[in-house]
Design a protein around this nucleic acid. Sequence first.
DNA 1: TGCGTCACTTTCCATCATGGAAAATAATAC
DNA 2: GTATTATTTTCCATGATGGAAAGTGACGCA
Lengths: 103, 103
Amino acid sequence: MSRPRFDPVIHAPNRLQLCALLAPLEEAEFQTLRDELEVSDSVLSKQMSQLAEAGYLRLRKSTFHGRQRTWARLTARGRKAFAAHVEALQALIAQANGHHPKD
Amino acid sequence: MSRPRFDPVIHAPNRLQLCALLAPLEEAEFQTLRDELEVSDSVLSKQMSQLAEAGYLRLRKSTFHGRQRTWARLTARGRKAFAAHVEALQALIAQANGHHPKD
DNA sequence: TGCGTCACTTTCCATCATGGAAAATAATAC
DNA sequence: GTATTATTTTCCATGATGGAAAGTGACGCA
């Protein structure tokens, strides 16, 4: 039985939520993400940096009507890693429900 | 949209796996858990202590053919907390898949 | 051109979690 | 008693996390 393998970059609660928010979207604004996650600017910035360092996230700065905004999107690699992590979680949940792992 | 609320006592990878292993069982042996989790004795002991402190886990010591063994089982409270955590994870996964949270 | 503001980013700092190794305990077996 | 097995706890070093505050860069405006 191979235990689910979690990605530590993704597993941390804030980053997990961040990925979940970004997964269904093309990209999202810094402030929107900050508000949804209910974290401070500095915390969001730092968590994003970690995902970016891992190559999971790309940041795009744009000037929108004279206001600077930062947009974030998952990279292909980030989506793949997140999908794998979700699979690991689902395997764990299946295990918890008493299902045998697939052979 | 209420974000999934994770239980920090359960979310840590080793404890999450530990709960998932115990969930479908009445109880399990210390050594079995240690081997399945692939952690050292001290690590398992410490993680168990944390779950026990939270009231999620009960330890039972028994002497089995002259050998002392420790058995662990989730308490009712632990099962409830774990179930809630799993629900939160599933909500997150649903969100990531673009589903709207239930109203 | 210089200043204020906005939108982050980075630094500083204090706290907490985690893990391995080794010492400490507990309960027998001999 | 003494060794042995099965944890448990201590010691210690490292790394993560978060908030507050200082720092940066890009305008908008007088």
